[in-house]
Write a protein that binds this DNA or RNA. Structure first.
Lengths: 193, 193
DNA sequence: TCAATTCGTTCACTTAAGTTAAGAAATGAA
DNA sequence: TTCATTTCTTAACTTAAGTGAACGAATTGA
């Protein structure tokens, strides 16, 4: 389990055994049951998450309706905006499967970053990389139709379509569940021809 | 002109005169004429931009149609994804006004970061902050209709609606120019009542 | 295990966006 | 200033998404 984390980190920096031990001593691994809410709307938080196994999602409640905007699965990291802006959270974070993740506190990060400049570098690289990915994703979203977005998802994250309820996928694609049903029907119809 | 940059940087780190001089010695300020293309599709690049005055936009050419996905104005920074991934650019970057900006090379950043850990910290904070903003933006986009997105833009970046051509705004809002015309007509119609 | 809830799909209808085309308005270059 | 080009708007028509409702399937939990 630690190995998953260290393998991931090794893409950005190299770590000595001593450094690994320091990380382990922070006690950051958590196993979380499906349905657990990690962060609620209105709540303040300093926690970032890194998913080792499982899946978490972020969602808003707007007019008492859930709007799912993102999923984080294996090897993906989430630092909610409220942690950066130090304001109450606008959204919820919950586990949609039994999930193994790390939970790190931003104070903790500040401390470790101060001790090991290497960590600062890793954090910078990670967030630069995530920003770049996020930009590409957003651009793809803007420039395509719901149907194209679904087909695109089918290509890039086919696992999500299996593991996530349709109504959550729908808002993730920016449409209503009924429309997603139609999109799917339309696509299988086309494939028959 | 340097002051604008240093004022901005002072939000993240404090700088000595000496450090400021090092930055100035890098010769990063550029004035660029309206219409200039800073980055082309297919091109490799290591340049990041920070807009001091003016406006730049990123756009894709899809089926020989321009799809504008972002605008960067005063005090906003852009590091194109291709700089991070070190692959050919998927999009164009061009100036839609005469623009004053800084152009920094990623090699340059690596060098300065190595010399001054402070810079590393600033870069990390900046990209964390931009990532958080980007996430919020994307979420708002996903959870609202074209009309709401336009009204939202009217609130948050009213300047854009003045300084940017409608057809560029349209794709920025994820719709066709004709639809944006209708959205605007609908809104002024509603306001009359 | 069974009842209750939640979820996914379908349908009919409404609303809004995409498409094609035409013309008006604005812009820019000679 | 004038002419050509680009941009914006309008209109008619098509296509797809939103809405409200119904119903069966799947899931859940008592």
């Amino acid at each position: 389990m630690e190995d998953i984390l260290f393998d991931f980190m090794s893409k950005y920096i190299s770590l000595t055994e001593e450094e690994k031990n320091i990380i382990l001593s922070l006690d950051i691994f958590r196993t979380v049951k499906k349905g657990t809410i990690l962060l609620k709307e209105g709540q303040k938080s300093k926690s970032s998450y890194f998913v080792l196994k499982g899946c978490i999602r972020t969602y808003y409640v707007i007019d008492s309706e859930e709007k799912t905007t993102a999923f984080y699965t294996e090897m993906e990291a989430l630092t909610p905006p409220c942690v950066i802006t130090q304001t109450p959270s606008e959204y919820y974070v919950s586990c949609i499967e039994d999930t193994l993740l790390t939970v790190t506190n931003s104070d903790m990060e500040v401390e470790v970053n101060a001790k090991f400049p290497k960590f600062e570098i890793m954090c910078r690289k990670l967030s630069e990389e995530n920003l770049a990915k996020q930009q590409i994703n957003f651009d793809e979203f803007k420039t395509s139709s719901p149907e194209q977005r679904y087909l695109n998802l089918l290509q890039k994250r086919p696992d999500l379509i299996q593991r996530v309820p349709q109504y959550q996928l729908a808002s993730y694609l920016g449409i209503k569940p009924e429309s997603l049903s139609r999109v799917r029907a339309r696509i299988t119809e086309k494939n028959k021809e």
